[in-house]
Simulated assay, not measured.
Amino acid sequence: MTRIRSWHEAPSKPRYTPPPGAVDAHCHVFGPQAEFPFSAKAKYLPQDAGPETLFALRNHLGFSRNVIVQASCHGTDNRATLNAIAKSEDSARGVAVVDPEISDSELDALHKGGIRGVRFNFLKRLVDDAPKDKFLEIAKRIERLGWHVVVYFEADLLDELIPFMEAIPTTIVIDHMGRPDVSAGPEGAEILAFRNFLRGHPNVWTKVSCAERLSAQGAPFDDFVESAAPLVEEFEDRVLWGTDWPHPNMQDAIPDDGALVDLIPRLAATERLRRKLLIDNPMKLYWPEEVGGEG
């Protein structure tokens, strides 16, 4: 399998300047492979994209913190994510992918290493198995740690997954709005179904991210903005934003991270909404000890 690069090597400087303390709440690290090998089940083999590169990009884009989500190419070996968190000087936290048989002591070690959530991936092109019963057991076991659950799925699975998500006892964060068809606009069937789901489930949050994947139009991603901005307005206390750097499997349409940052003021129309999206909401989930919650 050929190793691929899917990120822009010289992203533009955003015109929009994020507020001090802003969090890129969805990004990844890859390797370095020599130190942290990829999973034997990996569906893609990326070039190394380690913490030094990630933090340099963060500074270039004007962010202060990162949430590093375990990438599927590393499977349940979270060492690359933990390594990046350890090198961040407490400016990064993480979301892990764990084996269902993980012990409580191993979960405690992940928490000490900066992990604050666990991800359940239902994208068949990325994972071979997504056992709902095992996932529910994990969700119940992490509740004591104050973690949340991140769920990644495509829009056609929403109805099937609702009973599963209703059984999860923690806060849930949906990656990339459940990947709806944004080309149908804010009144499209899939985005309306997702909005109705959020209305009925106050413990569910979402990331208004991945314009580069979801837009049928491409830059400047007008269709994505038209569909995602109403979510930011209606669910202002339950939305997050992230770059998704280093954009796994985007090698044929590598996005400019600076241009993605410039979507933020279009997604969040006021300074108050931008602060919630970029600071208040991610801090509640990932650095609760700094906002009066439990760490």
Rank of each mutant, 00 (worst) to 15 (best):
P230A: 13
P246E: 02
P32A: 13
T81A: 14
I4C: 02
N59P: 00
E236Y: 08
P37L: 01
E187L: 11
N196Q: 15
E234G: 09
P255C: 04
H247L: 02
D159N: 14
Y286M: 10
D24Y: 00
F120P: 00
P163T: 03
F122M: 07
Q251W: 10
L278K: 07
F235M: 10
Q251G: 04
D257L: 08
P255K: 00
D99T: 11
S91A: 15
A56S: 15
A216M: 11
L240N: 00
T76W: 01
R116G: 00
L158R: 06
E294Y: 14
N121I: 00
F194K: 03
P19L: 11
R144T: 13
F55P: 08
F122S: 04
K276T: 01
H148F: 08
N66M: 14
R272S: 15
A216F: 10
L110W: 01
D90I: 07
P46L: 03
W7H: 13
M250H: 11
V151S: 07
L158E: 07
V261F: 06
D133H: 13
A229W: 05
V173C: 09
F63Q: 06
D24G: 05
P186L: 09
I172C: 05
I142M: 04
L240A: 07
S103H: 11
L267E: 06
Q217E: 15
P37N: 01
A167V: 05
G258R: 02
Q47Y: 12
F120W: 03
N196L: 13
L110E: 03
Q251P: 03
P265A: 12
E187T: 13
G295A: 15
E190T: 14
A34Y: 05
S72P: 02
H247W: 00
R79V: 02
L157W: 00
R65W: 12
R238K: 07
F120A: 03
D252L: 12
H8Q: 14
V204K: 00
F38V: 04
H60A: 12
E137G: 15
W7S: 05
G31K: 01
P255E: 04
V291E: 08
F135Q: 00
G242C: 08
D99C: 11
G94P: 09
S72Y: 02
L267H: 09
P169G: 06
G117M: 02
D159S: 14
V261Q: 06
Q47G: 14
R15M: 13
G185N: 09
G114F: 03
L136W: 07
G62V: 10
F197A: 08
R119D: 08
K132T: 11
A268M: 12
V69Y: 02
T171M: 09
K124E: 10
W147I: 03
V208F: 02
E137I: 12
T53R: 14
C27M: 09
I4Y: 06
D256I: 09
A40K: 05
A25L: 06
H60G: 03
L214R: 08
F224I: 07
G114I: 00
Q47S: 13
L126Q: 14
A155I: 01
E234I: 06
S64C: 13
G258D: 09
I138W: 02
T171I: 12
W241L: 10
N196A: 15
R116Q: 05
P180N: 11
D256Q: 11
T170V: 08
D129M: 05
D99Q: 13
T170L: 08
A71V: 04
L240I: 09
G117R: 01
V150G: 02
P19E: 11
